[in-house]
Simulated scan of single mutants.
Amino acid sequence: MAAHAHKHHEPQGIDLTVAAQAALEKSGEQWTSMRASVFAALAGFDKPASAYDIAESVSKAEGRRVAANSVYRILDLFVGANLARRVESANAYVANAHPECLHDCIFLVCDSCGQTTHIDDDPVTRGVRHAAELAGFTPVRPVIEVRGRCAACEAQR
């Protein structure tokens, strides 16, 4: 089974911001300066970030205090519009590297360093949805997280 069964273009930098703005506007929402700031902060983290991490980053960048509650509301909007994904076990968020593509994700979360890798494997996620349906459950947003150690941390053991 291929680890990355789902292939697509993953924009980075300004291209990711443009893709995120287009996806948000396509969902009927406005791309405000605050939403742009929150997305820029989120995309700037190399690990999942909490709303508090993002609020601190935006506060420093803008020279004014930004409340975590405001960031939570924006993050909820971003998750709903497919601009961000929530890493449930860490209560943290990552920018979706392909906001124009809607599918279920699998997160590999390193217990040592906190690094989180997102992989797409549509056959696995379809299997999870199918199993839920067979049990009489209607899956809305399956979250699959695998906890363990990343290759770098494992090599240091």
Score class of each variant (00 low, 15 high):
Cys101Met: 12
Gly80Asn: 13
Leu108Ser: 06
Leu108Asp: 01
Ala41Tyr: 00
Asn96Thr: 09
Phe39Arg: 04
Val66His: 05
Cys110Gly: 09
Arg35Cys: 02
Arg35Gly: 04
Asn91Tyr: 12
Ala22Gln: 14
Met34Gly: 01
Asp76Lys: 15
Ala41Asn: 01
Val79Trp: 11
Ala40Leu: 06
Gln115Tyr: 11
Gln115His: 13
His98Thr: 10
Asp111Gly: 14
Ala20Ser: 14
Ala20Pro: 03
Asp104Ile: 02
Ala81Trp: 00
Ala23Tyr: 12
Ser57Val: 05
Val38Ser: 01
Ala61Gln: 09
Val66Gly: 02
Glu62Cys: 00
Glu25Thr: 15
Gly114Leu: 13
Ala97Gly: 11
Asp46Arg: 08
Asp76Asn: 14
Cys105Phe: 09
Ala81His: 03
His98Phe: 09
His98Arg: 13
Arg64Ser: 14
Arg85Thr: 03
Ser59Ala: 09
Arg85Gln: 09
His98Val: 08
Gly63Trp: 02
Ala41Phe: 00
Cys110Arg: 05
Ser89His: 03
Ala22Asp: 13
Asp120Cys: 08
Leu108Gln: 10
Leu24Arg: 14
Lys47Asn: 13
Gln30Asp: 07
Gln12Met: 03
Asp121His: 14
Gly28Asp: 01
Ser27Pro: 05
Phe107Cys: 05
Ala23Leu: 08
Val79His: 07
Ile74Pro: 00
Asp121Thr: 07
Ser50Gly: 14
Pro99Ala: 13
Val71Leu: 05
Ser50Lys: 02
His103Trp: 06
Ile74His: 03
Val79Thr: 15
Ser57Cys: 12
Leu16Ile: 06
Arg86Gly: 00
Lys47Val: 13
Thr117Asn: 07
Glu29Met: 12
Val66Trp: 00
Ala67Phe: 10
Tyr93Glu: 05
Val87Asn: 07
Val94Thr: 11
Ala92His: 01
Asn96Met: 08
Gly44Glu: 11
Gly28Tyr: 05
Gln12Gly: 02
Phe107Arg: 02
Gly28Leu: 06
Arg73Thr: 01
Arg85Cys: 03
Leu16Arg: 04
Ala22Met: 08
Thr17Lys: 03
Ala40Lys: 10
Ser89Tyr: 05
Leu108Ala: 05
Gly44Val: 06
Val38Cys: 04
Leu42Val: 05
His103Thr: 09
Asp111Leu: 15
Gly44Met: 04
Lys26Cys: 03
Tyr72Gly: 00
His118Ser: 06
Lys26His: 12
Gly44Lys: 02
Ala67Gln: 12
Ala51Pro: 00
Tyr72Asp: 10
Gly114Tyr: 06
Leu77Asp: 04
Ala55Phe: 01
Gln21Trp: 04
Gln12Val: 10
Arg85His: 15
Asp46Gly: 11
Glu88Gln: 03
Ser27Met: 12
Val58Arg: 00
Asp46His: 09
Phe78Met: 10
Asp15Phe: 11
Glu56Leu: 14
Gly44Asn: 04
Arg65Met: 03
Ser59Arg: 14
Arg86Leu: 10
Lys60Arg: 14
Leu108Met: 07
Ile74Leu: 04
Gln12Leu: 06
Ala67Met: 12
Ala19Pro: 07
Ala20Met: 06
Ala19Cys: 11
